[in-house]
């Protein structure tokens, strides 16, 4: 049974679960090995590095997440999406690519606490051990029955995105997995 929680208020258990304020999200598809695209993506996201396979370059609210061999998700403050798209359009003019504002497609959550990995491990078949999912990596997988992506965003903290249409469900999943008394201690240090 999932606990019923108000996702606007967040949930406290052995980890805290909260929904973050809407974030600007841009899907960028194209040839990720092209220097031109890499420079454009870094400029649009406002970060200083470009991720490799499964990589995540995270600088606060800004990030470039590697989503597939030809797809990135760029995260930035919501107010900057228009500007970022314009930058991408200008920089990649004449280059085969696709850049789309998908900010409203997904909700973004944070799980914080010493056992944050455990909360995810209960819900996904993906390996979330510190060796398999260190800082600087992102994993697309599923949380229970829905697709999601998650990445370490600081010490003992993960950010998670899932489709907004299932945001309530994902929040309740995370809150249930993080409920006090549900600690497993698998990743205990």
């Amino acid at each position: 049974m999932l606990v019923k929680v108000d996702r606007r208020r967040g949930a406290e258990g052995f980890c805290s679960v909260s929904e973050l304020a809407p974030r600007g999200m841009i899907t960028l598809r194209g040839d990720l090995s092209a220097k031109k695209l890499q420079a454009a993506a870094m400029a649009a996201a406002g970060v200083k590095a470009f991720p490799g396979r499964l990589g995540a370059v995270v600088e606060g609210e800004r990030a470039i997440l590697w989503f597939s061999p030809d797809e990135l998700l760029i995260l930035c403050p919501k107010a900057e999406v228009g500007e970022a798209l314009e930058k991408l359009g200008k920089a990649l003019k004449g280059t085969h690519h696709l850049a789309a504002d998908v900010s409203d497609a997904r909700a973004i959550f944070a799980v914080a606490g010493k056992s944050a990995r455990e909360v995810l491990a209960k819900l996904t078949p993906a390996d979330v051990s510190p060796e398999a999912l260190p800082a600087g990596m992102v994993r697309r997988s599923r949380l229970a029955q829905v697709p999601a992506a998650f990445w370490p965003s600081g010490e003992d903290r993960f950010e998670i995105i899932a489709f907004r249409s299932v945001a309530d469900y994902v929040f309740e999943l995370l809150a249930t997995a993080a409920r006090t008394g549900g600690e497993v201690g698998w990743f205990a240090r």
């Binding site: 396979r53 499964l54 597939s68 061999p69 078949p125 993906a126 390996d127 994993r139 697309r140 997988s141 599923r142």
Partner: peptide, 12 residues
């Protein structure tokens, strides 16, 4: 072979 992860059947 594309993203290099060991994917569980339920992800596929």
């Amino acid at each position: 072979p594309y993203c290099g992860v060991m994917a569980d059947e339920t992800e596929l």
